[in-house]
Amino acid sequence: MKRILKNRLFWPVLALVALIVINTIARPSFISITVQGGQLYGPLIDILRNSAPLMLVALGMTIVIATRGIDLSVGAVMAVSGAVALTIIEGSSDPNGLGTVLVAIVVGVLVALVLGVWNGFLVAVVGIQPIIATLVLMLAGRGIALLITGGFITTINSEPYKFMAQGYVLGLPFALYVSMAAVVVVALLERRTALGVLTEAVGINPEASRLAGVRSRGIIWGAYAASGLLAGLAGILYSSNIMAADANAAGLYIELDAILAVVLGGTSLMGGKFSLAGTVVGVFTIQTLKSTITFLGVPPAVSPLFLAIVVVIVVLVQSPRLRSVLARASQALRPRNSSPQGGSEVAS
């Protein structure tokens, strides 16, 4: 019991389960899944599908945060990659051709990768604080996206492109496969290789890591590049969902949602130890919360208020001070304290 309570995933999972339970009590249809034409539908499926862009962005954000950094530019990068892809499709003679769409996607994601590499260059090589380095692109990125689309909201008709966000494969949304594939690839890269622990080392103590022979620069650079790439993919999914490149609205505030997802998942913004599983739970929590708010009939515009309340609760629950106060209170209630806990947990 104690070990479960001490597990870093305990609170995030509890929050998610509680949200699902509350939703189910409020409307039993919440957990119902219907099959129509071999495809699954239902609020839970929607949550899985809609969470895909946030999942991609949050994965990249987790790694960047683990290096003691932050990537504020993800939303702007999303806008750029969507703008690039849609502009290519719009300009092509064959918007429905698979080749055209593939080229558009690849180029869009590559441009995002370049932007990520640029961020990484500023942070790892020039040595600028991550908040500022990525703020540059956060400010300029949307301007660039607007220039690409010529200041308009580019809309297209392209079935293959639409499939990215709205298609189904084997009964499940294609976007879900994309985000799950990203989770698996990132998890394998971080935890089946030594990248994860080296990233944590760099995040906790960059100079000590460098002296130990860790390629700190490369690891930090790579984290931003990965974040850019994943944000680019998220931008493709987003623009495919609305079939438009809206430089102002694409990925607006997603950097904040992603940071929240990471923090909800138990990864400290101070860098170091990170939990990809926690981030996945965090993303689902945020998406479920958003769907709950919509269900409650609250205008979507007011939903940030609820998000803020959740953030405050979660952050306070994680706050060491509140925890120590609670611990002291519970110790005072107990007649004799049990043996001190032994052994610390091992990172996932």
């Binding site: 929240l260 913004l269 940030p304 803020a308 953030v311 509140l322």
Partner: peptide, 21 residues
């Protein structure tokens, strides 16, 4: 509560935006 300023003010930003609406 040792919340990082970034996160704390982010929560306030969300709250204020929601309240405005």
């Amino acid at each position: 509560f040792d919340v990082q300023p970034f996160i704390a003010s982010l929560a306030a930003m969300f709250a204020a935006r929601g309240l405005a609406f």
